[in-house]
């Protein structure tokens, strides 16, 4: 249940971002889920609601929006761009599991379909990122 740890990180980062922006209450948290990490989405969404600390008033009634981002790679040797079908070619369950935990291990199991190099850049869709935190900004005490 490694999704739980990632959900916990998302909520902590959102609370920190909201505090820095002076938000009194968070209405919505948008999370981008990269395809490469192969998150179990149901489990991740369940975890997001589970990790909300009851003692955190800013998060009461928060809504989570989860967006998926397809994976894109670019070969550093031949500059070819590639993506989902090349991830799908990793068939061994353990190898896929390794990428799930540490997406950079894709360099061990995925090769550029053009030249066969493991030296590629992960352009998009790596893992979890916090896309947006929306909420009410505390206006402070009304001027008297």
């Amino acid at each position: 249940m490694h999704e739980f740890a990632l959900a916990d990180a998302v909520v902590k980062a959102a609370v920190r971002a909201a505090r820095e922006a002076g938000m009194a209450r968070i209405e919505a948290i948008t999370v981008r889920v990269g395809e490469l990490q192969q998150i179990e989405r149901d489990l991740f969404e369940f975890s997001l609601t589970e990790v909300i600390p009851a003692a955190e008033p800013a998060l009461q009634g928060v809504r989570f929006v989860v967006e998926e981002e397809p994976v894109r790679f670019r070969c550093r040797v031949c500059e070819r761009e590639f993506g989902t079908p090349d991830l799908d070619r990793v068939e061994d369950a353990d190898d896929r599991e390794a990428i799930h935990f540490l997406p950079e291990l894709s360099h061990a199991y995925i090769r550029c379909p053009g030249c066969g190099s493991p030296d590629f850049e992960i352009l998009a869709g790596r893992g979890i990122s916090l896309a947006r935190v929306e909420g009410d900004t505390d206006p402070g005490p009304a001027p008297g």
Binding site: L6, L102, L105, H107, A108, Y109, P118
Partner: peptide, 30 residues
């Protein structure tokens, strides 16, 4: 260790990959 995930496979990594792997390990290890 990353070896618990990658076994004997070689995973070449450049700077950004190294930072990402460190962040991931620090964020998920209990």
């Amino acid at each position: 260790s990353v070896a618990y995930f990658s076994g004997d496979a070689a995973a070449p990594m450049r700077g950004g990959d190294v930072t990402n792997t460190l962040l991931e390990l620090l964020a998920i290890t209990r």
